[in-house]
Amino acid sequence: MQGILIIAPNWIGDAVMTQPLLAALKNQYPDSKIDVLASNWVAPIYRACTEVSDVIEADFQHKQLQWSLRKQLAKDLQSKNYQACFVLPNSLKSALIPWLANIPFRIGYRGELRFGLINVALDNPSKVNRPPMVEHYLALSQLLSDGESIAAGSLTPKLNVASTANQSINKKLSDANLDPNSVFVFCPGAEYGPTKRWPAAHFAALANNLIQTHSNANIILLGGKSDHQLAEEILQQSQNRTNIHNWCGNTSLDEAIALIGAAKAVVSNDSGLMHIAAALKIPQVAIFGSSDPAHTPPLSENAKVIWLNLPCSPCHKKECPLGHLKCLKDILPQQVFATLNTLL
């Protein structure tokens, strides 16, 4: 198997959880060249995967077919003579490119009228009996193998920070007069919605406790542009704003990976940045609300999960259907602070 193409998922966390699949494929086919076709948003994850030879970026837009773009990409990819393509999203449109590119083995899960487009397939598990996402993706590697079992160690994602990203983030820290050895990273956002976001007031109280205990601590609030206002709320409610820095929307994802890799510890919601911290083996506290830590946990021995496991959770809703958001509000800053201290 000389050429393998991966059609990447559309979410950062999901992309991180595909790395064990890449490692398994590289182990099965050590001489293969593994390329990844990814949106601009998740492409940096694959630049941090040593198994990947080339990351092909495309300006995919959410919920848009972009037929002309997909036809052009298929034409460009056909000349590369891939023998197999793993289509990791479940959508119909994600399966169009390898079919148009005439890639012989098009591997993925059945779903969304993809019969024929996917010609080596597994049944998609029901939402009730979903396995952990790493196992979900990894199972596809068996479709072209002789059925050998996957080693337990390969269930843990692993990322490596690119040297150029390290240089860039070190310069940003230097320009801000921040000692890299004093940085803690808080990730207050979550793209999914409010039921995954620990309250801003709790993040502010945690920051106060941390700075009072570690006088040289600098806390960087990290996330996308959509998280900037949330980070400002944390700053407004903090007692010591000098040591708290809002970098939400001010770093690329490549730089965010490097910053997390340099942090003393990370506190996050269930988000893509949580999975990045786990894959980099950084000490972290991961806060879960409406989602299920059994399905998408941070896969690291250096991670501690806090989840109240209330009778109403996991509800997987974007807004609290009961209106109280107790699954997050009742996780107190003191509990997170105590958990964080066990990691330092």
Rank of each mutant, 00 (worst) to 15 (best):
R197V: 08
T156I: 13
A200I: 02
D175V: 13
I220M: 08
K158L: 05
I169Y: 02
E233R: 11
K172Y: 02
A205M: 11
D227Y: 06
L206K: 06
P157D: 10
C248Q: 01
C187H: 09
G223Q: 03
I211G: 10
T156M: 10
T213F: 12
D179K: 15
G224E: 02
G223R: 05
L173T: 04
Q212E: 11
G193H: 10
D227A: 11
L173D: 05
T164S: 15
H228Y: 08
N160Q: 14
H245P: 00
S238H: 09
T156W: 01
R197M: 09
T164G: 07
A162S: 15
P188A: 12
L235A: 04
W247Y: 06
T164D: 14
N166R: 14
K171D: 13
H214V: 11
I219L: 11
F186T: 04
F184L: 14
L178M: 14
Q237T: 01
N250K: 12
L221S: 00
N243P: 01
Q239A: 14
L155N: 13
Q229V: 10
S168I: 04
D179A: 14
T213M: 08
A205I: 06
N250H: 13
N218I: 03
N218R: 13
Q239K: 15
L221K: 02
A190P: 12
Q229R: 14
F203T: 04
S168R: 07
T213P: 00
T164M: 08
Q229I: 11
G193M: 05
S168F: 03
G189D: 13
V183E: 04
S163D: 13
A162L: 07
V161T: 09
Q229H: 00
L230E: 03
G249Y: 10
S252V: 01
D175Y: 09
E233K: 15
D179W: 11
S174I: 05
P194F: 14
T251R: 07
Q167V: 10
I169G: 05
W247P: 01
P188S: 13
A162P: 07
H214C: 10
S226Q: 14
Q229N: 11
T213E: 15
N170H: 08
N218S: 08
N209K: 15
H214G: 00
A204Q: 06
P180M: 09
Q237I: 03
